[in-house]
Simulated scan of single mutants.
Amino acid sequence: MAIIDIKTEITGNVWKIVAEVGQAIEEDDPILILESMKMEIPVTAPEGGKLVAILTAEGDTVTEGTVVARIEA
């Protein structure tokens, strides 16, 4: 089993967390939604697995490259 970090691609605010720890995740499933410049940008899983950690909270500000979640593939 490998742990895979899920990183943001842009700077923004965590608008909504849509997945839960322990949930089975498929490739491209949304984990959370960022708000940046009045746009909603989903942060998705790069591959399938089990979501083992969410490392941010709704309302947090994140920068490009921030690890926001981890999945076990």
Rank of each mutant, 00 (worst) to 15 (best):
M37T: 10
V67M: 05
P30L: 15
G59S: 03
D60G: 13
T66G: 09
A57F: 01
I25K: 14
I4A: 08
P42N: 05
T63W: 03
V21K: 09
G22D: 06
E27T: 04
D28Q: 10
T61C: 01
K38S: 10
A57V: 12
V62W: 05
T44G: 00
K38H: 06
T61F: 07
E9T: 12
K38Y: 01
K7R: 14
A69V: 04
N13F: 08
K16F: 04
W15T: 04
E20I: 12
I71F: 01
G48R: 14
V68R: 11
T56P: 11
R70C: 03
E64S: 13
T61N: 06
I33S: 10
D28P: 00
I10D: 05
A53K: 14
W15Y: 15
M37L: 10
E72V: 12
G12E: 10
E64P: 08
E35W: 15
M37E: 08
L51D: 03
E64W: 10
A73K: 07
E20M: 13
G12V: 05
T66N: 08
M1D: 08
D29F: 00
V68M: 03
I4W: 00
T66H: 01
V43Y: 06
A19E: 03
W15N: 12
A53S: 08
E72D: 05
L32F: 11
L32W: 04
I17P: 14
L55S: 04
I10W: 04
E26H: 04
L55M: 01
P42M: 06
I6K: 09
V21M: 07
A19P: 11
A57E: 15
Q23F: 00
M39N: 09
S36E: 10
T8C: 15
V67P: 12
K38D: 06
P30W: 02
E40N: 05
E27A: 11
M37S: 08
E64F: 07
P46M: 10
V14M: 09
A45R: 02
T8P: 01
A19N: 13
G65M: 05
T11I: 07
V68S: 12
T66F: 13
T56C: 15
E20G: 07
L34P: 08
L34Q: 03
D60M: 06
E35C: 14
T8I: 15
E27Y: 00
T61G: 06
I3V: 14
A45L: 02
I33Q: 07
R70S: 04
